[in-house]
Amino acid sequence: MEPQSSTTLVLCGKTNEEKELGWCLKTNSTLKLPDSSPVNVILHSEIENGKEEDAFGIDSYLNSLSTNRLGKLLIYSPKLASTHDVVSHNFCELPIGAVCVADVQFKGRGRSKNVWESPKGCLLFSFTIQMEDGRVVPLVQYVVSLAMTEAINDVCLQNGVPSLDVRIKWPNDLYLDGLKVGGILCTSTYRSKKFNITAGIGLNVSNQKPTTCLNSVLRRLGCDSQQLQSEDIVAAFFNKFESYYHIFISQGFQALEKLYYKTWLHSGQRVIVQEKNENMDEVSENVVTILGLTSSGFLLASTEDGQTCELHPDGNSFDFFKGLVRRKLV
């Protein structure tokens, strides 16, 4: 049996507090991988100046970050199985808001345990959140999605390029020019009366296959020399998300709904839902109009006769808009 190659993790921090924590994590050999494969932990301060072409710019990221808490401890890897697995497996050893970024990952995670390879040009990162109210945990993915669309606009504005119309496809996909350009995955575990949430994001920044990417759209707009950089987008994301997350926790998602609906694809959309007839095996299909979100985070819709209902995925389709199931609201 061939020996397993080690995964390199580079630790760095925004302030001395995070730098000291990184030193402790390395010294105590704290960080582990789910498959127990070897880990090579390096402090950013131990690396000579200079970085490989297309590698994540750690210094640029930290210089652009202006949060109070989130994103200040960074775990970077040129290549690993999954940023999501690194964060979730070491959740209790990391501070809330710690982030793992990789240039390439080969066992990325998605809905329904889907696995895929993510090449260079993808922005891949996962981070930690902790919540107490389980009723609003399903809504945090919407705050993450919203913060990313706004972060992309902020970076475009900073670079002096046209804003990119990245939109949210419910519940957790990002679309640009009608094609998927990114996705969000949030998973949680319950421990000591708190929900430990790992939020992961994949975004096509420079890799235009298999769909499209941000920079290819900018090139079509004549902005060849002003391409977006992954490290700027991650920093802008945390700067935006920390603000939105505070609003979300203190005021509820309702305080962000207007902005969210402005960004998503579905207001007024007519979709087909399925409903099994009583005492029969037949399934009927009905057209409904999407109005927004319910308090539990599912789709709120109206039927053609004016009744409101909540729409759930049937669980059998990768596309959440195929086979929607209607549940009447009292």
Results as ranks from 00 to 15, higher is better:
Gly134Val: 02
Leu139Asp: 00
Glu150Lys: 09
Ser88Met: 11
Asn114Met: 07
Arg135Ser: 10
Asp103Ala: 06
Ser88Arg: 12
Gly110Asp: 02
Asp133Pro: 00
Ala102Tyr: 06
Val101Thr: 08
Val144Tyr: 01
Val115Pro: 04
Arg111Tyr: 03
Thr149Leu: 00
Trp116Asp: 03
Ser82Gln: 05
Leu94Ile: 11
Asp154Thr: 04
Asn153Asp: 06
Leu123Tyr: 03
Ser145Asp: 01
Ile96Asn: 12
Pro119Ala: 14
Ser118Val: 04
Asp154Pro: 00
Leu146Lys: 03
Val136Ile: 14
Phe125Asp: 10
Met148Asn: 02
Ile129Glu: 06
Ser118Ile: 01
Thr149His: 02
Glu93Ile: 05
Val155Tyr: 00
Val86His: 12
Ser112Phe: 15
Val161Lys: 13
Leu124Lys: 10
Val155Phe: 01
Ser145Phe: 00
Thr149Asp: 02
Pro138Gly: 11
Asp85Leu: 13
Gly110His: 02
Ser163Asn: 04
Val136Arg: 13
Gly134Cys: 03
Lys120Arg: 15
Met148Ala: 01
Ile129Arg: 08
Asp133Lys: 11
Asp133Ala: 03
Asn90Trp: 04
Thr128Phe: 00
Ser82Asn: 11
Phe91Arg: 14
Gln158Arg: 13
Ser112Met: 15
Met148Ile: 02
Cys100Gly: 09
Cys122Arg: 13
Asn114Trp: 03
Ser88Asp: 08
Leu157Lys: 09
Gln141Glu: 11
Asn153Met: 02
Val87Leu: 14
Gly97Glu: 07
Val86Glu: 08
Asp103Arg: 09
Leu157Ala: 08
Lys107Ile: 05
Val99Gln: 06
Leu94Gly: 15
Ala151Trp: 00
Arg109Phe: 01
Val136Leu: 07
Asn159Ala: 07
Ala98Phe: 09
Asn153Pro: 00
Pro78Lys: 11
Pro78Thr: 14
Asp85Glu: 14
Pro138Met: 04
Cys122Gly: 08
Gly121Asp: 05
Val87Phe: 06
Phe127Ser: 07
Pro162Trp: 00
Glu93Arg: 15
Ile129Cys: 03
Gln158Asp: 07
His89Ser: 13
Pro95Tyr: 09
Gly121Ile: 04
Phe106Trp: 15
Ala98Arg: 13
Thr128Asn: 13
Pro95Trp: 12
Thr83Asn: 09
Val87Lys: 09
Cys92Asp: 15
Ile96Arg: 12
Gln130Met: 04
Gly108Tyr: 01
His89Met: 11
Cys100Gln: 05
Val87His: 11
Gly97His: 10
Asp133Leu: 02
Arg135Trp: 02
Glu117Asp: 13
Val99Thr: 14
Met131Asn: 01
Lys107Pro: 06
Val87Glu: 09
Val161Thr: 11
Gly110Thr: 01
Asp103Val: 07
Ala151Met: 01
Ala98Trp: 05
Ser112Lys: 15
Ser126Gln: 11
Leu124Val: 09
Leu80Ala: 15
Asp133Val: 02
Asn114Gly: 07
Ser126Val: 07
Cys156Leu: 03
Ala147Gly: 02
His89Gly: 06
Val155Thr: 03
Phe106Arg: 11
Val155Trp: 01
Gln141Pro: 09
His84Phe: 12
Phe127Cys: 12
Pro162His: 10
Pro138Asp: 09
Asp85Lys: 14
Val99Ile: 06
Thr128Val: 12
Leu157Trp: 00
Val87Arg: 11
Gly160Phe: 02
Val144Thr: 04
Ile96Gly: 05
Ser163Val: 04
Ile152Cys: 05
Leu80Phe: 13
Ile152Lys: 01
